[in-house]
Amino acid sequence: MKKRIFVTLKPGVLDPQGRAVHHALDGMGFDGVNDVRIGRLIELDVADTVTDEALGEMCEKLLANTVIENYRIEGSE
């Protein structure tokens, strides 16, 4: 079973990488980009017995740092 975990910076946490990319896009002449935030996509292939609760625990303990990041778990077959 494939699971996708999206880890994103919490609102209010400054994203230096996003800001640099935003600046680069502006410099390349792409207009109308209001903001850029960079996150991380983690794809897991797990046994069917792995619950969303267990995935949540993986996020809390390792995959995300909840001081600065939020996470979202998506299942995909």
């Binding site: 946490v13 400054l14 230096p16 990488q17 640099a20 001081v67 600065i68």
Partner: peptide
């Protein structure tokens, strides 16, 4: 708290 990438990259 947490240590993030330096602000100027």
């Amino acid at each position: 708290g947490a240590l993030m990438r330096n602000a100027n990259q």
